[in-house]
Design a protein around this nucleic acid. Structure first.
Length: 405
DNA sequence: ATGTCC
């Protein structure tokens, strides 16, 4: 690769030789890495092309914050909620999931919930009177969030997006712990063999989209940067709350929406900007589809609806900018997947994945675009993360019921 | 990705 090197480690892609990387994605990565203020760049093994900016990468930028590197889905991430419920009959579970999808989770308190979400994250829902008691009790267990500088009034129109996954690769699912690789770590996280787990992948919906739209493509410094970062904080709080609510809905279906049945939770943001020190220098760490992987801290790498999601333990690899892949990474673009997979699979066969999981999705195109075949092999991604000492496996979560709506 | 193009 033709990268300007200050030293050999300045920009690198952390993927095993066997991991396929699309030429366009490599070009996009190279272009950002060669930016004059990019101190370091790390490409994850799930690197794939985005709209100008590659997805599955981390960029350490000196001097300024670059909203363009974050894009519209500010605060996008993954939540994992382990439970004490043992995997059982899937038919009954699917019926219950379908039943709860019609409920109004927020009981008509969308605006109040959104204000609380923006300012305090999921914990804020505990203080919203009128919400269901079970929801408020679970919310009270949530960790506190950073406080944004501004209020949320500008984005109140986005309130109704709270509690639904959105489009694209977003989903909420019920999985089971199908394999445990590190018993001590798994136990510490509340993950026991064959127990049910909720996995939610979603972001800040239209709120992040509007935030991004309100800024130009220019890098931000000083007061401008602070203002943007405050909005990122609010969008991240909103996105975390959204994942909390998506998870809560699945917990309701599992009859597990109470603190005694929930074994903690993980919530990892893979699309944001944070402060860090790289090579002794303060930088803005832009994560674009890359999950944090600090030493000894848990992280999550998403599979597909037909392959396992992995809970891992970060190794704090500084060369990889303390990050891991956020998922399997696309092998095919959306239109490519639509074209190729429509030939290969009949629509009626898409309601179940090859591994037997159920899929609840009323958009036919999305079923093809997000088909497991459109993604790289998750095992290769996990192996890459191990071989580069970025993270090590803790437990595999096999999807049982995937909801995309 | 997007209260997403009608």
């Amino acid at each position: 690769m033709n990268l300007k090197h200050n030293n050999q480690e300045r920009a690198a892609i952390f993927a095993d030789p066997g991991v396929w990387l699309e030429g366009n994605a490599l070009q996009q990565f190279e272009r950002v890495a060669n930016h004059e203020h990019c101190l370091r760049a790390a490409g994850m093994p799930d690197l794939h092309a985005g709209r100008g900016i590659p997805i599955g990468a981390v960029f350490a930028m000196e001097d300024a914050v670059h909203p363009l590197l974050i894009g519209s889905d500010i605060g996008c991430g993954v939540r994992v909620v382990p439970t004490t419920i043992r995997a059982g009959g899937i038919d009954k579970l699917e019926r219950r999931v379908r039943a709860v999808l019609d409920d109004d989770l927020l009981a008509g308190l969308h605006v109040e919930a959104m204000k609380a979400a923006w300012a305090f994250g999921a914990q804020g829902l505990a203080a919203v009177e009128g919400l269901p008691d079970a929801l408020r009790m679970l919310a009270a267990e949530e960790p506190p969030c950073a406080r944004p500088l501004e209020s949320s009034t500008k984005h109140l129109g986005m309130a109704k997006a709270l509690g639904s996954a959105g489009g694209g690769n977003h989903f909420v699912e019920i999985s089971k712990v199908s394999a445990i690789h590190d018993h001590d770590r798994a136990e510490a996280l509340g993950l026991s063999a064959q127990s049910l787990v909720v996995v939610a992948h979603s972001g800040s919906r239209g709120l992040g989209y509007e935030t991004q739209r309100s800024w130009s493509a220019e890098p931000l410094r000083g007061q401008q940067a602070l203002k943007y970062l405050g909005q990122v904080t609010g969008a991240c709080n909103f996105a975390r709350t959204n994942r909390f609510l998506l998870s809560y809905r699945m917990l309701l279906a599992m009859r597990a929406a109470r603190t005694s049945k929930v074994c903690g939770s993980l919530d990892l943001v893979h699309n944001d900007v944070t402060e860090a020190v790289v090579d002794g220098q303060e930088v803005w760490l832009h994560r674009k589809g890359a999950a944090p992987a600090r030493d000894g801290q848990p992280t999550v790498v998403l599979g597909t609806r037909g392959s396992a999601t992995w809970v891992m333990e970060g190794r704090g690899n500084a060369a990889a900018l303390w990050s891991v892949a956020h998922g399997a990474g696309r092998r095919m673009g959306r239109s490519e997947a639509l074209g190729k997979l429509r030939m290969k699979y009949k629509k009626k066969n898409l309601a179940r994945s090859a591994s037997g999981g159920r899929v609840i999705c009323n958009k036919t195109d999305l079923l093809y675009e997000e088909h497991p075949d459109a993604y790289k092999d998750i095992e290769q991604i996990i192996h890459s993360l191990e071989s580069f000492n970025m993270a090590r496996p803790v437990a595999a979560l096999e999807p049982l019921i995937t909801v995309k709506q």
